[in-house]
Simulated assay, not measured.
Amino acid sequence: MSGGAVEVFYDHLAGWWPVISPVSDYAGECAEVLGILKARRPQAQTLLELGSGGGHVAFHLKADFDCTLTDLSPAMLEVSRRLNPGCRHIQGDMRTLDLDRRFDIVLAHDAIAYMTSEADLRAAFATARRHLAPGGLAMFIPDEILETFEPGASDLFGGEAPDGRSARALEWCGELAADGTTAVHYAFLLKDTDGQVTTAGETHHVGVFARADWARWLEAEGFTVETLVEQTDEDRTPRFLFLGTRT
Score class of each variant (00 low, 15 high):
S2P: 04
V6N: 15
V8H: 01
V8C: 06
D11E: 14
P22S: 03
A27E: 15
G28A: 15
G28W: 06
E29L: 13
E32W: 13
L37V: 11
K38G: 10
A44N: 02
Q45E: 15
L50K: 00
S52P: 01
D64M: 02
F65T: 05
L72Q: 04
S73F: 04
E78K: 15
R88Q: 15
T96D: 05
D100M: 03
D100T: 04
R102V: 03
D104I: 04
L107E: 03
A108Y: 00
I112D: 00
I112P: 01
S117K: 04
S117M: 05
D120M: 03
D120A: 10
G135Y: 02
G135V: 06
F140K: 10
E144D: 14
E147K: 11
T148N: 14
E160M: 05
D163T: 07
R165K: 12
W172S: 13
C173F: 00
L176Q: 09
A177T: 03
Y186I: 00
F188Q: 01
L190R: 14
T198R: 13
A200W: 04
G201Y: 10
H205M: 11
V206E: 12
A215K: 05
R216I: 07
L218H: 02
L218D: 02
A220P: 01
A220Y: 01
E226A: 14
L228T: 06
F240E: 09
L241A: 07
L241R: 15
L243D: 09
